[in-house]
Design a protein around this nucleic acid. Structure first.
Lengths: 231, 231
DNA sequence: ATAATAGTGTCTCTTAGACAATATTTC
DNA sequence: GAAATATTGTCTAAGAGACACTATTAT
């Protein structure tokens, strides 16, 4: 295989969460060229003896100091335009990660420059490399995954109410949903959520039942966005 | 970036077509170790100054000699387990390609060892590297894409009948479909197929209208597998 | 005429969305 | 009690599958 070009392989992770009713992404202020002071997705080089998923998990931990006990992590796609990094030829395997709301990343670590940004405040110009494209693809993927996978529960704390789950859909999709119909759909989907039997007061009004994540990996039946608008 | 590990980046392409009422995949008999005489997916190294999609297209052409004027080509996912290739650390960006039925690949080229194999005759043991996994993922992706994208038409010649399109669904999904309902769904989906106005006799019976691919990139509404079996 | 396939009509059942109605809290 | 939110009930319309029916060809 001597003579063949070898290339730097990185992972970049789009970490999404919801804070204060808005979708946020974790980004890092770059301290060095290229793209000094621009924002970048957390990521880094894949080690020589490391699986891609493992690399993503490691970088997420190193660069953010987040507790990533159960994080939703899935491969998004791979970006390899020849000049996407002006320093050298790199190919980046991008990941989508979803977390429940977290405290601000800890200072004093690699994560010092890490910050949560509302996705809709990040104009493409502010992001380094091709990270604006990666972010856009990730958000689109997340929107789609909500229909067929129990991704929404990953945005929630360990125990949550149906209304909180609905807020996830509403925020990520950017549209409001009928509480009554949503409730029925979620509880009908097999193993999406499991009732804890307990209730809890969140705000005013009747207290809601608490649920936790069920074992499903797919939603049956799916919870679809209304696509009839485009017909 | 000196000091960081550099890695070989390859593309591997799962080329699917339908021949004689069965789903086939293009594979290449390996002539050298590792995995001598085992079957492998067409693919190769990404050049230093080449986009990933371009590399996939180039390899497809070089290794198969196929006319790839309009081929369906989409990135599948990236495989990077540390020891997936015993010679060196490689990361492979896998692609799914779909073609209309083609003549047997030409001899005398790189494609000499290329052959179409029925997918269901390829036991995982016969495939080199992690290509059995890649193939399985690709077939699963294709099955899913049929629901939401006009992928089925890529399996057909330039002009085709609704019945031919239905056979694609039936073969890839492995289940039979109601001709009447299928006809309605396909013609209702916007810009999936466009009538040529002409008709053609294919076999006995009333001649069928000929269609060609429409401009849609998504199917509205989708053509769903009946998922009620799993409810 | 009979067989075969293309394409349309129609019936029934399920599901989605709209929204009324009830339940259980806080103020 | 009034307001707020949770949860259930019900109505209606659209879509899916089943299948009867018509259309157009070969034999």
């Amino acid at each position: 295989m001597a003579g063949y070009p070898s290339i730097f392989v990185t992972v970049d992770i789009v970490v999404l969460t919801i804070r204060g009713e808005r979708l946020h992404v974790l980004s890092i202020r770059r301290g060095e060229p290229p793209y000094v002071r621009r924002l970048a997705l957390p990521g880094g080089f894949v080690d020589q003896d490391e699986d891609l998923d493992t690399a993503a998990r490691r970088e997420l931990n190193e660069e953010t100091g987040l507790d990533i006990g159960d994080v939703w992590l899935e491969q998004l796609r791979t970006y390899g335009a020849p000049r996407r990094d002006p320093r050298a030829r790199t190919v980046s395997v991008a990941y989508l990660a979803v977390l429940a709301d977290q405290p601000e990343p800890e200072a004093g670590t690699d994560a010092a420059a890490a910050r949560w940004w509302p996705v809709d405040e990040l104009s493409p110009k502010r992001l380094a490399f091709d990270h604006a494209t990666i972010l856009a693809d990730a958000v689109e993927r997340a929107r789609g995954r909500l229909e067929y996978a129990p991704l929404a529960a990953a945005f929630c704390a360990d125990e949550f109410t149906i209304a909180e789950l609905r807020r996830v859909y509403e925020i990520v999709w950017g549209r409001s949903l009928e509480p009554a119909n949503f409730h029925r759909k979620v509880t009908r989907a097999r193993d999406f959520v499991v009732s804890t039997g307990r209730r809890e007061q969140r705000g005013s009004g009747r207290p809601a039942r608490l649920y936790r994540r069920g074992g499903a990996t797919q939603l049956h039946p799916p919870i679809l966005r209304d696509t009839s608008l485009s017909s």
